[in-house]
Simulated assay, not measured.
Amino acid sequence: MKKIIALGIIALSLAGTASAQVKPEEQIKYRQAGYSFMSWNMGKIKANLEGEYNTQQVQAAANAIAAIAGSGMGALYGPGTDKDIGEVKTRVKPEFFDPANGPDIGKIATNFNTAAAELAKVAAGGDKAAVQKAFGATGETCKACHDKYRME
């Protein structure tokens, strides 16, 4: 577990280097686009769980979520992305950028990546009940970050 947390912290610490190539306002736009795309795919899975279950649609959506979750989204939280920039608005709380919260954020990010990868793995098996459980776990990891670090 400590190894996973350490990897999450390392990923967040490398974010500053990778983000140097992208303007802060673009980082905000890109991360919002990534989260919007994941949300859309979560909606597709939810619709399948509540209605007619289509294994291929669920697999595709779960794979998209896992791919974005594992893509290094932490790089889009670089310096200057902690506040609105002109017309580009952010809902990330300032506490997210406090270095003292780094271990907590690393843990939350790692939990999300792990849950998203597990969702994709379970979706590949086609078991609706297992997908329901993994879907719930993935949603809880989203909520964990929103509850602490996202403004309404």
Rank of each mutant, 00 (worst) to 15 (best):
A100R: 05
A69M: 00
I28T: 04
Q21F: 15
N54G: 04
G70S: 07
K107H: 04
E118Y: 00
E50H: 13
Y53G: 10
M73G: 06
N48Q: 12
G16M: 02
I85H: 01
D98Q: 06
A61Y: 02
A6V: 13
M38I: 15
K133G: 02
P103W: 00
M1F: 06
G102A: 06
R91I: 06
A124T: 10
S36I: 08
L49W: 14
K29I: 09
K148L: 12
A144N: 11
V122H: 01
L119I: 08
V88Y: 00
F112K: 06
Y77L: 03
R150V: 09
G102H: 00
D104R: 00
D104H: 02
A18S: 14
A33E: 07
P99V: 00
K148W: 12
E26V: 12
K89Q: 12
A62F: 07
T81M: 03
A61F: 04
A47T: 14
K3I: 14
N113Q: 13
G106M: 02
I10Q: 07
T81D: 01
A129G: 14
T138H: 01
N54K: 11
A60L: 11
S39C: 10
K143W: 09
A120G: 11
E95V: 04
Y149Q: 10
P24C: 14
F112D: 06
P94F: 06
Q57C: 00
P79W: 15
G51N: 12
A120M: 03
T138Y: 00
N63W: 02
A60C: 04
G43F: 12
D127H: 11
Q27A: 14
A20W: 11
G51V: 14
Q56G: 07
A60T: 11
A130L: 11
K128M: 09
F37H: 13
Q57E: 09
I85S: 01
A62N: 08
R150W: 01
F97L: 08
A64Y: 00
T110H: 04
A60H: 07
K2V: 08
S36M: 12
A109I: 05
G70F: 03
K23E: 14
K83D: 02
E52W: 05
I9A: 06
F112N: 11
L12H: 08
I9G: 02
K107D: 04
K148P: 07
G86H: 04
T138G: 13
Q21E: 14
T114I: 09
K46N: 14
I105D: 00
I85F: 03
I108F: 04
G51A: 14
N41L: 10
A64I: 07
Q56A: 13
I45A: 08
N48T: 09
N111I: 02
C145K: 11
A67D: 07
L119V: 08
M42S: 15
P24K: 14
P103A: 08
P24W: 11
I4Q: 15
M73P: 01
K46E: 12
V92W: 04
A62E: 10
E26L: 10
